[in-house]
């Protein structure tokens, strides 16, 4: 089996008496979508923060693209090709849609120290950005001020920014949150094709999307992974049913 692109080993993180992550070991293999599900407060956000570098684990480590990145910053991990999308859109609201995506392209290029050339006339950046917008279907809104986008369009924009990084792995924090049925379906279709480009670690509440997309699912409860397996495994698991999906599921 191919070596995992992204891997956590024994991640543990406490906030006072609260164990937000307890011995979390998960991996993300090439070409797959690995979904992390769990009830509110299960520690999904804490886990993502540790994977992306915003939080240091108390113990355990994070490996990415063949190296131990536990001590690296968010920025350094991004530079190595870890692209995340935010649960609550983190976009520059005063900027146009195109500018937000160009920021991603600029980050991928890694040299923001150009002071006198208009960024919009930089063809390389612009082409990367426009291609990403095209892919998520936001081309018509390139010149729109981001604050004027609908919630769903902002989620699309989040994905577009991640695309410009040409990453080795995606970490997506509830990309479907707040999308209507139609939007959710469209994004599901899009992510489905994306996994061959780079594997996706998908934290998601929308079970329809998770069951439709995931190659594997890990269930996080009270900071612990209580089960990892295929969609069928998880659907049938008694432990999961009890802890999370509820009796009727």
């Amino acid at each position: 089996m191919a070596e995992p692109v992204l891997e956590t080993k024994g991640l543990t993180k406490s906030f006072g008496a609260l164990r937000a992550s307890e011995d979390v070991s998960i991996d993300l293999r090439p070409g797959e979508i690995h979904a992390i599900i769990g009830p509110n407060g299960a520690g999904k956000s804490t886990l993502i923060a540790q994977i992306c570098g915003a939080l240091r684990p108390d113990s355990g480590d994070v490996r990415f693209a063949g190296a131990d990145v536990t001590a690296l910053s968010v920025r350094a991990r991004a530079r190595r090709g870890l692209a995340r999308t935010f649960q609550i859109s983190a976009l520059a609201m005063d900027h146009t849609v195109l500018q937000n995506v160009m920021l991603g392209a600029l980050g991928a290029r890694g040299r923001p120290w150009r002071f006198f050339v208009p960024v919009l006339s930089d063809r390389g950046l612009r082409e990367t950005a426009e291609a990403a917008l095209e892919r998520v279907g936001l081309s018509d809104h390139a010149a729109t001020r981001t604050a004027e986008l609908s919630h769903g369009q902002r989620r699309q924009l989040e994905v577009a920014v991640a695309l410009t990084l040409r990453p080795r792995a995606f970490v997506m924090d509830e990309p479907m949150a707040g999308l209507g049925a139609g939007g959710s379906k469209r994004l599901t279709g899009f992510l489905d094709g994306l996994r061959t480009e780079a594997p996706i670690l998908l934290v998601e509440h929308d079970m329809d999307a998770v069951f439709a997309l995931a190659d594997r699912i890990s269930v996080l409860v009270y900071g612990k992974v209580i089960a990892t397996g295929t969609v069928a495994d998880i659907r049938q698991s008694d432990v999961v049913r009890e802890a999370y999906l509820g009796e009727g599921a």
């Binding site: 910053s73 968010v74 920025r75 530079r79 935010f86 983190a90 976009l91 520059a92 600029l106 920014v161």
Partner: peptide, 8 residues
């Protein structure tokens, strides 16, 4: 946070 997430 976004700026750091794109590697800057």
């Amino acid at each position: 946070a976004r700026v750091a997430a794109v590697g800057l």
